[in-house]
Structure formats: C-alpha cells, structure tokens
Amino acid sequence: MTVEAASATWKFDFLDTVNADPQCTPACLKIIKAYLHFASEASPVAFMAKSELVARTDLGEATIKRTRKLLSKLGYIRAIGKTAEGAVQYRLHNARKQTIDEHIILVREKLAEDRREGKKRFRTRTAARGDQNEPPKNATGGSKGTPRSDQNERQIPRLIPRGILSEGRDILATNSESTGSTHEGQQREQSGLSETAGYAEMSRGDDSDEPIPVPCDQDEAQAMIEAICEGRAVPDIVRRRLLSMLRAGVLTPRMASNILGPLEDAA
C-alpha cells in the first residue's frame, strides 16, 4: 500500500470512528473532518484560524469551542502549541477506534438478537391465535364451516345507464344502502338491447363521464360495441380498443364519442 493510500485509509477510519461514537455530536464529525484535511497519518498535526474553521464547518464560534473541548476530553485531539499567528495546533489521534469497533459489534449482535426474539414472539402469538380460531372438524376431517355454494350466493345486479337499452329484455337494477345491516331493494325493468340503438341514446344518461357497466358476457359486449358504433364501418383496431376499455370498466360515453368522432369526420 502506498503512503497516500495508507493515509487515506487512516482518515476514513478516523471519520468512521467519530461518526459511530455515541458520545460525539454531529459537530464533532465536522470539526474532525476539517482538521483531517490538513493532516496525514505520517504527520497527524493540524491547525487553522477560527474563522477558517467557521467557514469550513458552518458552525458558530461557541459551538466550535464547546466541541473542541469534547473532542479533547475523548482523546481525539490534543493541543500541542500555537503558531506564530496564534492558532492552536492539535495532534489528531484515533484514540477510541478499538472501543467503537467493539461497540459496533455489540450493537449489531443486540439488534440481531432483538429481531430473533421478535420473530419468536410473533410465531408464538400466531400459533396461539391459530389454535383458538381453528374451526371444529367433522368426522371426515373437514371443517364444519358453512359450505360454499355459488348458487346460494346473492348475485349483485349491474347498473345499466339510462337510455342504453330498449324494450324487449328483462334486467335487474339495484338501489341498496347499508348502515350497519344489509338492506336490499330490487327493481325490475322491462328493457332489451337493440342492435340499432344509436349511440346518441346511450349518451343520454345522467353523466356522460360515468363509465359504462362491464358486460356480463361476450355476446353482450359485442352487442354494446355495435350499439356504440351505430353500424358504421369502424376499423377492427378501434373496435378492439373500445371493447378492451369496455371490459376494463373505464369506457365512458364521452370517451367513446371522442374516439369515434374523428372517424366520422374523416368519412
């Protein structure tokens, strides 16, 4: 290792020690860093005027005085004299390196032990809750929970915008609100999807920016796309785009009108 590299390593170790020292303040690190700029491992002596130290650390004079006293107490700096201009010369010494290295190891091991204990307590609590919450089993070993039946589940009706359907087909609409207990209200309307239904009728809903409901199957999706396109010669790529947005539940009458508008103008 070259002299320069060895000196750089010494400086980095010095900074690491001060940075990890629980008795040092952030100001300690700033002052040590400023002095290390002028020192080396071969000549660990540095000095500078107080004004220069203020400029390099952005610390007040009172803070600098208090911090240098702390660094001297911890053994990091030791005054060895003054220059002709009156600046105090300090010898820098990484006096607490071994102590702080051991401190880092102990803290690392303590944190690891805390993590292990935390995981152990978590597993214990989880196991205890699992035993309490496990449902009773029947004779065949299965749980006695309520059997699931898709046929018995309440089907949630889809809301259809006003004007999108014409007479000829039954649909189910719902208007329910819940305030602590479930209240169901169902209303049946006589209406059906017309392949010739114009998009202008579709957009007569309360809000042209409200997404069109997602179709329940492929046939309904195709029928809704035909109604939106009004039988015009719409390119397949545009139809696929409209169909994709419709299935995703993001297509609104206004968006469909904006997509189809330029095609109508171009025609």
Rank of each mutant, 00 (worst) to 15 (best):
264 E>I: 01
120 K>V: 14
190 Q>I: 13
185 G>N: 11
257 S>P: 00
111 L>G: 13
32 I>S: 00
6 A>E: 12
93 H>W: 07
104 I>Q: 14
47 F>K: 01
231 G>H: 05
194 S>L: 11
111 L>K: 10
154 R>A: 08
261 G>C: 04
62 A>P: 01
130 G>W: 03
81 G>Y: 10
46 A>K: 02
150 D>W: 04
4 E>I: 13
258 N>Y: 04
34 A>M: 09
102 E>P: 01
191 S>F: 08
148 R>D: 11
60 G>T: 13
49 A>R: 12
188 R>K: 10
128 A>N: 10
36 L>P: 00
50 K>S: 12
175 N>W: 06
159 L>N: 12
113 E>S: 11
263 L>H: 01
31 I>V: 15
222 Q>K: 08
206 D>E: 14
139 A>C: 09
257 S>I: 02
51 S>V: 14
207 D>W: 02
118 G>E: 11
11 K>Y: 01
137 K>G: 10
146 T>H: 05
64 I>D: 01
231 G>P: 01
162 R>V: 13
161 P>A: 08
15 L>C: 08
49 A>K: 12
66 R>L: 12
114 D>E: 15
158 R>H: 12
169 R>Q: 14
56 R>P: 00
40 S>C: 07
148 R>C: 05
205 G>L: 10
243 L>N: 04
144 K>S: 13
96 R>F: 07
90 Y>D: 01
57 T>I: 13
71 L>E: 00
168 G>V: 10
16 D>E: 15
206 D>G: 10
20 A>M: 09
213 P>T: 09
212 I>E: 01
33 K>N: 15
111 L>P: 02
67 T>I: 07
215 P>G: 03
34 A>T: 09
87 A>H: 09
48 M>K: 02
99 T>D: 13
25 T>L: 03
22 P>Q: 05
39 A>E: 04
57 T>C: 09
52 E>Q: 12
96 R>N: 14
18 V>F: 01
238 V>Y: 00
63 T>C: 05
230 E>Q: 07
56 R>K: 11
184 E>R: 07
34 A>C: 11
101 D>L: 09
139 A>Q: 10
121 R>C: 08
57 T>V: 10
171 I>S: 04
228 I>E: 00
172 L>I: 14
104 I>S: 08
211 P>E: 06
176 S>C: 10
24 C>G: 02
46 A>C: 07
216 C>A: 15
110 K>S: 13
